[in-house]
Simulated scan of single mutants.
Amino acid sequence: MKQVKYFFLARMIKLFLQFGFLGSLIGISINILIFIINDKPSYKIGAFKFGDEIPGYSLKAALDLSIPDTISNYKNGTVNTYKYNRYVYDKDFSKDSLNEQTANKFITFGSSPDIKVENRIIANNVLVRVRSNHNFHNFFWLISSQMDLIFTALFCLLFIKLTNRYMDKDIFEARSFKLVSFLGFLLIIREVIAFMISFINSEIISAASLSTTSTISEKTYNYIGLNLNFSVEVDYGNIGVGIIVILLAQVLKQAILLKQEQALTI
């Protein structure tokens, strides 16, 4: 039987997907094993390193970083000043002697010197390491931190099946479009699970703020405002793409079935 066009390319893609599927399963297994053993956060086997040097579990969060425009050091305290007055201070140090005042600003490099970068930075999706004294929290974070690997394994498995159908010349069969529909469902389910994980995390840790405190005296040095919000927004783009993939798969499926019926009628 004659092979399909780009047969060898399809085999290479299938091999790459198989490695991705196997690698995801190995990563999940090792992370669970590290959780069970619980003696150190990472292991090195030959040239490969598994886990993280920092103990804990990876958790997605939204980052809000506010760098003060000026830092004024008075005799009895420090005042951070922001251009948009986002913070109100309980104490007024203006009557004290000003010892030192520093300014923070981003220096831009380029063809236009008139561009200014503001001192507030917002990142909607960052990874932080967390750990708890409660085993339930740690177990939940272990499972939730494996979601990316789990869905990577599912996507790889799905595309392996689609590649097999292409190599067997069955790609335009009605059952192949069920796999394409399942791809759309996976995109939607992934965001639904991400929302549920985000909601539970926001109940466990509502927010976190960076606090810089002297280990010798009782002074605090909050030179920057750094806040973490663990209620991460859902990627509605993936949900939209998932819905489009499902609808497109159904349209193509009906078109293929209609064409087959017309061929049988003729």
Score class of each variant (00 low, 15 high):
residue 29 S to R: 04
residue 86 R to P: 13
residue 43 Y to D: 12
residue 50 F to E: 03
residue 110 G to F: 07
residue 100 E to F: 08
residue 106 F to A: 04
residue 113 P to S: 10
residue 133 N to W: 00
residue 112 S to Q: 09
residue 61 A to K: 01
residue 71 I to C: 08
residue 88 V to N: 13
residue 113 P to F: 03
residue 64 D to C: 00
residue 30 I to C: 05
residue 128 V to T: 09
residue 39 D to A: 06
residue 31 N to L: 09
residue 111 S to V: 11
residue 118 E to L: 10
residue 103 A to Y: 13
residue 131 R to D: 01
residue 28 I to T: 05
residue 31 N to S: 11
residue 74 Y to N: 10
residue 62 A to P: 13
residue 117 V to K: 12
residue 131 R to H: 02
residue 130 V to L: 05
residue 44 K to P: 03
residue 134 H to T: 03
residue 99 N to V: 13
residue 70 T to S: 11
residue 36 I to V: 15
residue 82 Y to W: 04
residue 82 Y to Q: 06
residue 128 V to L: 02
residue 39 D to P: 04
residue 46 G to H: 10
residue 44 K to G: 11
residue 45 I to K: 07
residue 31 N to Q: 12
residue 59 L to W: 03
residue 101 Q to V: 11
residue 50 F to I: 04
residue 133 N to R: 01
residue 68 P to D: 10
residue 33 L to A: 10
residue 65 L to G: 09
residue 31 N to V: 09
residue 69 D to I: 07
residue 90 D to R: 08
residue 52 D to W: 03
residue 88 V to C: 03
residue 120 R to W: 01
residue 111 S to P: 03
residue 102 T to P: 01
residue 133 N to P: 02
residue 122 I to T: 12
residue 111 S to R: 14
residue 95 K to D: 15
residue 102 T to A: 12
residue 137 H to G: 00
residue 85 N to Y: 08
residue 60 K to V: 00
residue 88 V to A: 14
residue 120 R to P: 03
residue 89 Y to G: 04
residue 139 F to S: 09
residue 58 S to E: 11
residue 136 F to W: 02
residue 136 F to V: 07
residue 52 D to I: 05
residue 70 T to G: 00
residue 45 I to R: 06
residue 108 T to E: 12
residue 88 V to S: 15
residue 141 W to T: 03
residue 112 S to H: 09
residue 45 I to Y: 11
residue 50 F to V: 03
residue 55 P to L: 05
residue 81 T to P: 08
residue 115 I to L: 06
residue 140 F to E: 01
residue 97 S to I: 05
residue 134 H to M: 06
residue 83 K to W: 01
residue 91 K to W: 02
residue 101 Q to E: 13
residue 41 P to H: 07
residue 84 Y to T: 12
residue 132 S to V: 01
residue 109 F to K: 14
residue 85 N to T: 06
residue 100 E to R: 13
residue 117 V to F: 11
residue 68 P to F: 08
residue 75 K to P: 01
residue 126 V to M: 04
residue 92 D to P: 07
residue 42 S to H: 11
residue 127 L to H: 04
residue 100 E to L: 10
residue 83 K to H: 05
residue 29 S to D: 05
residue 137 H to Y: 09
residue 70 T to M: 10
residue 117 V to H: 08
residue 36 I to Y: 09
residue 137 H to D: 12
residue 47 A to K: 14
residue 70 T to R: 15
residue 87 Y to N: 09
residue 77 G to C: 07
residue 30 I to M: 09
residue 112 S to Y: 07
residue 128 V to E: 01
residue 31 N to K: 14
residue 93 F to W: 06
residue 87 Y to T: 13
residue 115 I to V: 14
residue 38 N to E: 07
residue 109 F to P: 01
